[in-house]
Every structure is written in structure tokens, then in C-alpha cells.
Write a protein that binds this DNA or RNA. Structure first.
Length: 290
DNA sequence: CTGTGTTCCTGTTCGC
DNA sequence: TGCGAACAGGAACACA
């Protein structure tokens, strides 16, 4: 499921349960996901209090009171389910969650429990010293936060300048901008009127003058992410938020999963097309995306 | 170094 | 209806 807006939605859902709570029990039901669980995973969490739950790119990071941090990534199919205390007897399995894929259950002193479910097991969980996160191999190559202060046309120019790969591949590369995935790259490129197939470097104006194209792209990326977060993320294939509710940004997709529909750009007569690009579907309008 | 293709895994959808 | 193929929101890794 999760690109930046979905991970941020999950963070907002989990924060009230995690922050200030202490782990009383951790059920780890298998040895690994995409990566092995840390040694003594449960033992190292029990008794620790969560100071803060934050997000970097598509990672959730729970800062603990002993200076360690629980780092979690949802991969392609990971999701969390919150079961509030006292009503444990009434716990229901959220639609679409096969209990066979409940890999971790966190129990807290506030009576709540949080279950991590991940059928494809592309997610991962790590325990890192808080001050070493940025130096960890999974983090050190990450690019800028697209909703952060450093995100602007000039920064995009720096990242894309001279790149021969496609614009879409460059935007998907977490080393340039961290947090975009297939959906929001398609959506941002459509909003910016840029073809996913053109060379990434071709959007950089070598004159060094103001770069209206990149201004548009930066704007489009920020807008689509903000709007998606506001909508609670996107729910494809019935994916749920932590409280079991559905995000609804998928209804606002302009091109993603809309092959054959008319291009929503004003006065554009194009039809949304789908092409495979680097092994993934690209949805775009061949008419208004140049 | 850069860019591309493969791979990890299960589940759902689509075409015959 | 059944059945195999294609495809799915990520990203590390191998290789040209």
C-alpha cells in the first residue's frame, strides 16, 4: 500500500497509542520479514517507553526512552491494526487481513495492542541507536523529504541535472526524493504536464534562469502529497487505516488506475494510457504530458 | 558511477 | 467454474 501519504496516515493513527506508552509484551511470530528481526527483538522492547513516533521517507520511527529506535517499513503490503484495550474480546479481524499474516503484536501498558500484518513480507523492522539512524545503510542514501523546507525547484534541478534515466524513474528513486511511489509519481507528473518518459535531465534549464517547469513539478509533488494525506491516503484493494477506515484519495486520482478514461485536464481531449516502464505501470496522458 | 532488470512473497484479477 | 498468467502500493541487489 504505502507511499508517503499512507505512511503518514498510519503514523497519525498510531501516534496516540504509541507515544507515552510502554511495551508490556511483544509477540514476534516469525524470524524475518524482508530482513531478519533484530536479535532479542521482543526483549529489547519490553519495558521501553515510546517518546515519539515520527516518519522519515516511508519509514516509521518510534524513539524509545533508552536511546534506541524501533524502525518500521511497510513494504508493499504491510498494515497495522489497533485493538483498544478492554474490548480485546471484541477484537475483529479487519477485512482483507488474513490472521496468518499477523507477524508482530505489540502490547502496551495503556491496554492497547497493535498488530502488524504483511502478506508479502516486504516490510521490515529494525532496532537502531537513535543517533545512528541517518548513518544506517537504509537511510544514508535517502533524498530529501518532499514536504520539507529543502524541497524546491532548485533542489530538483540539482537532483535531476544530467540524469539520462526517465523522469519517472528519477522521481521514484528514493535517493533523489524520498517518499514518492508509483501512484504519486504518476499523479504529480500529470499535474505538472510532464511526460514520464522524457529524460530526467531534460527538465533542467541549463541557462540557470528561473525554471517554470521545475517550479510546476515541485508544486505538483507537494500538492498531491498534501491532498492525499488530508484524504487519509489511498485505499486500493480495500486497504485500511489503523482504525479500519478507508482512505479516499483514490477517488481523486487523475490518471493512476484510470486507463481508457478521458484526461481530466481542462480542454484536453486525451485518453489516459498505461505503459510498462521499468517493470511497473505508468499511467499518463499522451496529449497533455510533454 | 549509472541505468536496468531480477528478486523477495502472497493475493487478486483477468482472459480463455 | 476452473486455471494459469499477469499484475500489485517497495527497494536491495546483481549485472552490463
Amino acid at each position: 500500500m504505502p507511499e508517503l501519504p499512507e505512511v503518514e496516515t498510519v503514523r497519525r493513527g498510531l501516534a496516540p497509542v504509541f507515544e507515552g506508552a510502554t511495551f508490556t509484551r511483544v509477540d514476534q511470530r516469525r524470524a524475518d520479514l524482508r530482513l531478519p528481526f533484530p536479535q532479542d527483538f521482543a526483549k529489547r522492547l519490553i519495558g521501553r517507553r515510546v517518546l515519539k513516533l515520527r516518519r522519515r521517507a516511508k519509514y516509521l520511527i518510534a524513539e524509545l526512552d533508552d536511546g534506541e529506535a524501533l524502525v518500521m517499513h511497510l513494504g508493499m503490503s504491510g498494515s497495522f491494526r489497533i485493538d483498544k484495550g478492554a474490548s480485546l474480546a471484541n477484537t475483529h479481524i479487519a477485512k482483507g487481513q488474513n490472521p496468518a499474516h499477523d507477524h508482530v503484536v505489540f502490547h502496551f501498558d495503556n491496554g492497547a495492542s497493535v498488530t502488524y500484518n504483511d502478506p508479502r513480507r516486504f516490510g521490515c523492522m529494525l532496532l537502531l541507536h537513535s543517533n545512528e539512524i541517518e548513518k544506517h545503510p537504509l537511510f544514508e542514501g535517502l533524498g530529501i523529504e518532499p514536504l520539507g523546507n529543502e524541497m524546491n525547484a532548485q533542489k530538483l534541478a540539482d537532483e535531476l541535472h544530467g540524469r539520462k534515466t526517465s523522469l519517472k524513474a528519477a522521481l521514484l528513486d528514493q535517493g533523489n526524493i524520498a517518499g514518492l511511489g508509483n501512484i504519486y509519481v504518476c499523479e504529480a507528473l500529470h499535474r505538472a504536464g510532464l511526460s514520464p518518459f522524457r529524460a530526467a535531465g531534460s527538465v533542467v534549464d541549463v541557462s540557470g534562469k528561473p525554471m517554470p517547469t521545475l517550479e510546476r513539478l515541485a508544486r505538483a509533488i507537494k500538492d498531491v502529497l498534501r491532498e492525499a494525506i488530508e484524504a487519509g491516503g489511498s485505499s486500493l484493494r480495500d486497504h485500511r487505516q489503523t482504525d479500519g477506515s478507508l482512505g479516499y484519495f483514490q477517488h481523486n486520482f487523475r490518471v493512476y488506475d484510470r486507463e481508457g478514461e478521458p484526461c481530466p485536464t481542462k480542454d484536453c481531449k486525451g485518453v489516459v494510457a498505461r505503459k510498462m516502464q521499468n517493470g511497473r505501470s505508468t499511467f499518463y496522458c499522451p496529449v497533455c504530458q510533454k
